[in-house]
């Protein structure tokens, strides 16, 4: 006897909403970049992303004023994404290289590095202003 236990589940699925959150738009726009430009200008609406989990590790922020230039963060960065600038005794973080482990936040004695909720970071230029934190 042929048994197809999936059939009932499949029929049930016909009347259910899709489980996927259609982000950033319900249907794939011809060009995502153009679509996001339009969103920035207020001409199109974005379908909101899922909320980030608690203590999410997004783009890094750096409190330049309280940094003492101890270079401990350089020692634990697995991606070598942090550069020390000897003239100013401050650091520069390359977000394009960062792997978001937040280990620098843990080791910083002055608590001047933090992770934010920002996760839409892709650009075409890895040295763009938004990709360098200093």
């Amino acid at each position: 006897m042929v048994r197809l236990p999936m059939m009932t589940e499949l029929l049930r699925q016909l009347f259910k909403k899709p489980a996927t959150n259609a982000f950033p738009a319900r249907y794939l726009p011809p060009s995502v970049t153009t679509f996001l430009h339009k969103v920035a200008l207020g001409e199109a609406a974005i379908n909101p992303p899922m909320p980030v989990p608690p203590k999410f590790r997004g783009k890094i922020t750096y409190d330049r004023e309280s940094c003492i230039g101890c270079q401990l963060c350089l020692k634990v960065c697995p991606a070598h994404a942090i550069e020390f600038l000897p003239t100013t005794k401050r650091v520069r973080i390359y977000v394009a290289q960062c792997i978001f482990c937040s280990q620098c936040n843990d080791i910083c004695p002055k608590d001047c590095l933090h992770m934010t909720d920002e996760f839409l970071l892709a650009t075409e230029n890895r040295f763009a202003d938004c990709q360098i934190v200093e």
Partner: peptide, 15 residues
Amino acid sequence: MDLIENLTGNRVNYG
């Protein structure tokens, strides 16, 4: 995956 994300802060590469 959601549970792991909630516990570690990431879906993959948990750290």
